[in-house]
Amino acid sequence: MEERGGGAGDFRKHTVDRLLRLNFRDGRTRVNAEAQLLVGELLKVFVREAAARAARQAQAEDLKKVDTEQVEKVLPQLLLDF
């Protein structure tokens, strides 16, 4: 369909662009191609960090399954880091 940089876990450039433009206050604000790719990378790191920290939290609690409780526990520090 569209050009997809890497694996299935990548955010598409188009999706990133729409996500950002949805939240811009000024309709004239644009994002160049390089910045789109970088924000995609940043979002990927954000999700991986969230997942990895929640997984570590579950393991610290001797659980095999990550649930929202573990996500909630790692959320404050995650948001402080981004």
């Binding site: 433009r21 939240n23 399954k65």
Partner: peptide, 26 residues
């Protein structure tokens, strides 16, 4: 990491990411 994610936890991370996009964009 040899763990499993519940559907709710994936949905929670998705929602957090979507909200975080708002902060990133602004």
């Amino acid at each position: 990491k040899d763990v499993q994610f519940s559907k709710q936890s994936i949905a929670a991370i998705a929602e957090i990411t979507f909200r975080q996009c708002e902060i990133f964009a602004k």
